[in-house]
Design a protein around this nucleic acid. Structure first.
Lengths: 198, 198
DNA sequence: CGCATTGTTTACCGTATGGTCCATATTGGG
DNA sequence: CCCAATATGGACCATACGGTAAACAATGCG
């Protein structure tokens, strides 16, 4: 009935996301996007609307993958505390291995647009809320398993873990050495309140 | 001998800094800057060079004030641990009171330009290094005063505190509720390793 | 009072921007 | 084979961008 598309929409969103990730929203031009995706302006606008809509699509893709990665880490094999530690260490690996200093697209978008763009702010806030919920669940499990002290509100404790995780990303983006990032993560894990011995 | 300037350079840098702070480097136009500073393009370029140089001046101003604020908090009256806690709570107040979601200009600049602009990266890294040094000094004092457990490397502990501080800012920028920010800060302070009782 | 020197103002420049339009190409249905 | 329908690619548009230049204003010195 009509000419079929020659591209895969998800692949294009992925390419656009990498471009936005590397150069930020404002500093990414339409020419950058056509070059990154291989699509002409007409196709891009026909399929996604405009630059801002494409960015939201790209951001959504990143957010979905981030949340899925957290969920995967926290539901991996192992005890609750092992899974929590595994997630923290996985984040450390990503942050310490980020040679290009692209940072996290969510943090980057929040910094660049969060204050002025409600659609971005809403997405960023949603990811943080979901991450907190997942961490809360895992902390609760660790408490019930006797790996962490009961008597602490798991949501509050998960909030601290979330703050540490975002802090690791932030200092990494600021160029802190890998050793500081690894050390801080291990200290945070070690200082989580354990049950009284015996 | 020559016509005198009609503006105060520091005041102009301050106005430009606020504009960059609000809208970011790339999204701030020359027109925004002339409007914010009240100066014409000629004066701006005559006094500062170009947009990038003016941004670096603005960033330097912000960095200097930030470092000075940390130093002031950590050398306020009170015991070392009280000063450390005072600084953390001061940061919490700033973050929780940031209704406009401007965030921290250093974090914002690091996110937007840190990966591509070595001059920005260097400044950001310097502030983080200085903050770490100041925190290390204060943590060491707290250990010597018996408020924190000896036997922990003060630099490592200070790294964790720095991570938590930057994390508080990051989650604040992401729209986390004030309660989470305050809670996380208090938990972090409470979990710092104390000397064994007795 | 000139005059050199510097600051200020404004018009202007070339370019890059986000976005649109249209001619062309490719499909399936009649 | 033609037509409706959608996709593609590139020319094109108005505007906004960072930056420059030149005319003009204000100062101190001689």
């Amino acid at each position: 009935m009509a000419r079929p598309r020659t591209f895969d929409e998800d692949q294009v969103v992925c390419a656009a996301r990498d471009q936005f990730w590397a150069t930020g929203y404002t500093a990414t031009s339409l020419d950058d996007l056509t070059a990154a995706t291989g699509l002409g302006r007409g196709s891009l606008y026909g399929a996604f609307g405009d630059k801002h809509a494409l960015f939201l699509r790209a951001l959504d893709s990143y957010c979905d993958e981030s949340t899925a990665a957290i969920r995967a880490d926290l539901s991996a094999p192992g005890s609750p505390l092992e899974r929590l530690a595994g997630h923290v260490r996985a984040m450390v690996s990503i942050i310490a291995g980020d040679v290009d200093r692209h940072g996290c697209l969510i943090a980057k978008s929040a910094a660049e647009l969060g204050g002025a763009d409600p659609e971005v702010a809403q997405r960023v806030n949603r990811v943080v809320t979901e991450a907190h919920a997942l961490l809360t669940e895992c902390v609760g499990e660790a408490q019930r398993a006797g790996e962490l002290a009961a008597g602490h509100d798991p949501a509050r404790l998960a909030g601290l873990v979330l703050v540490v995780l975002r802090g690791l990303e932030a200092v990494g983006t600021c160029g802190a050495p890998q050793s500081m990032i690894r050390d801080a993560a291990e200290q945070a894990l070690a200082l989580l309140p354990r049950p009284a011995a015996g």
